[in-house]
């Protein structure tokens, strides 16, 4: 069907013997921020197609857990921990579990080739996707927090702290999720790791820490979502200790930076095999 013979085309006169020639000019490279914005926007649009049912699941799960726990805890500090844990659980479900699954499947199916053959910084792909997944958690987390406050009669005055908790806990958990998804040798393992991470966030984050044995409490301290939970829980008190809140959030931030760096490294490794 091709109607243009190769000989008449521009540039074809040089034919085969052209080994020593000036290298051609390279096409433009995508810069970090525009590329990140483009990936973020594309990922966010996927929510409309694929993610909305799962966001409902995430929210209902947390709301259900709070209703169950109402019969167990007797207000005060435990109620604060349950509400904060349930709210952060939405972040763990979406940012950790779903993102691990997404990257695991993308890697296994060869979908990473698409990004790997575009001149885009690896950090833009990882941060764009992680940012979008963290954003998916906003409505569910807010709904869960408000519902929990009403259910347990907690003050809603300091709910604004979610503005810091969601992005920082989101960064930490999305970074972990992305790293799990990109490092797991098989997609089933990525799914498994994501599920385990979420189960850990559920059990260690929602159940009040005071009743846990020492070993479990140590595990709880290792989990980054814990610091998001603690930061949020502290703000329900009558006189929150803002230094401690900031400290907890700083831990989330540091884990986020480290895990996103690991995920970016894992992406680079997965893209060129």
């Amino acid at each position: 069907m091709s109607v243009v013979p190769a000989e008449v085309l521009p540039g074809s006169a040089l034919a085969v013997e052209e080994p020593v020639r000036e290298a051609a000019e390279l096409g433009p490279r995508a810069r970090l921020w525009p590329a990140l914005a483009a990936v973020y926007r594309a990922q966010l649009s996927r929510a409309r197609v694929a993610r909305i049912p799962l966001l409902f699941v995430a929210t209902f799960q947390s709301v259900g857990i709070m209703i169950l726990m109402r019969g167990v805890v007797d207000g005060g500090g435990e109620a604060q921990a349950v509400v904060a844990g349930s709210a952060v659980l939405v972040v763990a479900f979406v940012a950790l579990n779903l993102l691990a699954q997404y990257f695991g499947q993308l890697r296994a199916s060869g979908g990473l080739d698409h990004y790997a053959t575009l001149p885009v910084p690896p950090a833009a792909v990882v941060l764009g996707a992680a940012g979008a997944y963290a954003s998916f958690t906003v409505p569910g987390t807010v709904v869960t927090a408000v519902f929990g406050c009403v259910l347990f009669g907690l003050p809603i005055a300091h709910l604004w702290v979610l503005i810091a908790v969601i992005p920082l806990a989101g960064a930490a958990l999305a970074g972990l999720g992305a790293a799990c998804g990109l490092l797991a040798p098989r997609p089933e393992l990525a799914t498994l790791l994501g599920q385990l991470g979420m189960s850990a966030a559920l059990l260690l984050g929602v159940l009040p820490a005071d009743r846990m044995p020492e070993a479990v409490r140590f595990l709880r301290d290792l989990l980054p979502s814990t610091y998001g939970v603690d930061a949020f829980a502290r703000t329900f008190g009558p006189h929150p200790d803002w230094a401690l809140v900031l400290g907890d959030l700083a831990v989330c931030g540091v884990v986020g930076v480290v895990s996103l760096a690991v995920a970016t490294w894992a992406y680079r490794r997965a893209a060129v095999r």
């Binding site: 995508a30 483009a38 594309a42 993308l106 199916s109 060869g110 080739d113 698409h114 053959t117």
Partner: peptide, 28 residues
């Protein structure tokens, strides 16, 4: 070069328009 692989999983959940636009953005 521009590469068209056999897999479309990276683009599957995007609209045709956004898939083309995003790819162009990522091509700089």
């Amino acid at each position: 070069l521009a590469y068209l692989g056999q897999e479309s999983t990276a683009l599957d959940e995007l609209t045709v328009s956004l898939a083309a636009e995003t790819t162009g953005r990522l091509r700089g």
